[in-house]
Design a protein around this nucleic acid. Structure first.
Length: 435
RNA sequence: GCCCCUGUCGUCUAGCCUGGUCCAGGACGCAUGGUUCUCAUCCAUGUAACCCGGGUUCAAAUCCCGGCGGGGGCGCCA
């Protein structure tokens, strides 16, 4: 049997993490090209479905690298649904029902045989329902407006979906759908209900957790590969202890048997770590390219070696959106309080002395050989056995204006001799200025 | 209220099916120490959990029963 899975979102809100994870598991299980992964937009509710949300879903999936094969829009398949609705009525399994409450005076209801339904769920085992308490549920608003349960059942059958992999919130929909399948004599797909991804408050991820939309993660500078990897690990675990896994490894080891049953909170701290892992794996050129949308024009017009700057910040980067602030001092001379130049208990005269020494050392390096190795050897030799902080701290602060940054030699190399000296002079100036 | 699902460190989880190798393993986080100033990276060490109560058994995180907790569903939405 060919494996055919589908992700069937309704475009009624921004694409969020839960949807992304469901789509990912469907893809990972189908393992194209061996199996097929299908995208089906469930937009039968015309009032709530919005084109912008469909875009949000398709853009989000593409960005993540979750690529679908066949694509369907349920609203374009109403004729097919109607055909089966008619069949249902003709066979006596559905009927026109007069209503006393609700929007309409007439809807179409399914004639519930009121039997026990049980099905085998790959992740949960046997699940049983007594469908009599479901009643004669509505399958269409009218002859021309089939509703969700009917549309899903018809489309899954028509598209020959072999495995329905979806969120746990659909468990209670399953008995209704099984009833419809048997009334329509459709084969029953294999079901797998995934545990839900929970918000920090332990409730199901929904519109109100707006920060959990995929686009939000993209905008904050998370890498798609990192999110992909992280999402795969929510509710699923490989056999070994390895967690940072390439798409290839994920495809090879994924199985529904190793999907867990309990809901999982999305841990942003661990996501940050995972993102950092992927950022560090990137080579500088590639990283600069994906980071460029986050950086201001001044960064590129500075004439400095952008790749080297990125390389310097790489180990302390959790997400790309932190970058502009981190690299600002490269293209903009820093402003800072002169007290920042003070290392430990140094007094002003000692700071001045250190700064002058730094200036002298920098001046003596020829502009041609102005690189970090040379600077380092010269400084270390000059400092000798002394406290390195007395020289290196003021040096680094003079260059960056910051308490926290990469080392002074690397920064000086990128800034160049002239600019480095200019900044040292500035430090000298503010320190010697008498109030 | 009714129905369904679920319960291992703060978080993600391994182990549970096929009881002993688990005084419970890994990862994130956190803490401490090391690595040419700071921060980060890297390395090392530490921190912390089987929801509760019975039962079965020589032996239970693992099997059975009962509680309790958490979540989801009960639309002329999907």
């Amino acid at each position: 049997m060919e494996i055919r899975t589908r992700y069937a979102p309704s475009p009624t809100g921004p694409f969020h993490l839960g949807g992304a994870r469901t789509a990912l598991f469907n893809l990972l299980f189908a393992k194209p090209p061996a199996g097929k992964f299908i995208l089906r937009i469930e937009d039968t509710d015309k009032a709530r479905s919005l084109e912008q949300y469909e875009k949000s879903i398709t853009n989000g999936l593409s960005w993540l690298g979750i690529n679908w094969g066949e694509f369907y829009r349920q609203s374009e398949r109403i004729e097919i649904h109607k055909k089966y609705l008619k069949k249902l009525i003709d066979s006596g399994n559905a009927y026109l029902s007069k209503e006393s409450k609700g929007e309409r005076s007439e809807v179409i209801r399914f004639k519930n045989p009121k039997k026990r339904v049980e099905f085998e769920d790959i992740v949960r085992g046997k699940i049983e329902f007594d469908t009599s308490d479901l009643g004669d549920f509505v399958v269409a608003k009218s002859l021309d407006e089939p509703l969700y349960h009917l549309a899903v059942v018809v489309d899954d059958a028509e598209m020959k979906i072999s495995h329905v992999i979806r969120g746990e919130d659909h468990i209670s929909n399953t008995p209704r759908q099984i009833l419809l399948q048997s009334a329509l004599t459709f084969p029953q797909p294999i079901y797998a209900h995934l545990p839900l991804i929970l918000g920090p408050d332990r409730s199901k991820l929904s519109k109100r957790h707006s920060a959990e939309s995929v686009e939000e993660y993209k905008n904050q500078g998370y890498l798609p590969e990192a999110l992909y990897n992280f999402l795969a690990l929510l509710g699923w675990h490989p056999e070994g202890d390895k967690e940072v896994m390439s798409k290839d490894e994920l495809f090879k080891s994924f199985s529904l048997e190793r999907v867990g049953k309990a809901g999982a909170i999305f841990d942003n701290k661990k996501m940050d770590w995972m993102n950092g892992e992927y950022i560090r794996e990137k080579d500088n050129k590639a990283l600069l390219e994906i980071a460029s949308p986050f950086l201001p024009i001044e960064f590129f017009e500075s004439g400095l070696d952008n790749e080297k700057i990125i390389a310097l910040e790489k180990p302390r980067l959790k997400k790309l959106s932190e970058l502009p602030n981190k690299v600002q001092y490269f293209y903009e001379a820093p402003k800072y309080d002169k007290n920042l130049l003070v290392w430990k208990q140094m007094v002003t005269s000692e700071v001045l002395e250190a700064l002058n020494k730094i200036k002298k050392l920098v001046e003596d390096v020829s502009a041609g050989g102005f690189d970090k190795e040379r600077l380092e050897s010269i400084f270390l030799k000059a400092i000798g056995e002394g406290d390195k902080g007395r020289i290196l701290w003021p040096f680094r602060v003079a260059l960056t204006g910051r308490k926290v940054s990469p080392g002074p030699f690397e920064i000086a190399e990128i800034l160049g001799k002239e600019e480095s000296l200019r900044r040292i002079d500035f430090a000298l100036n503010i320190t010697s200025y008498k109030v």
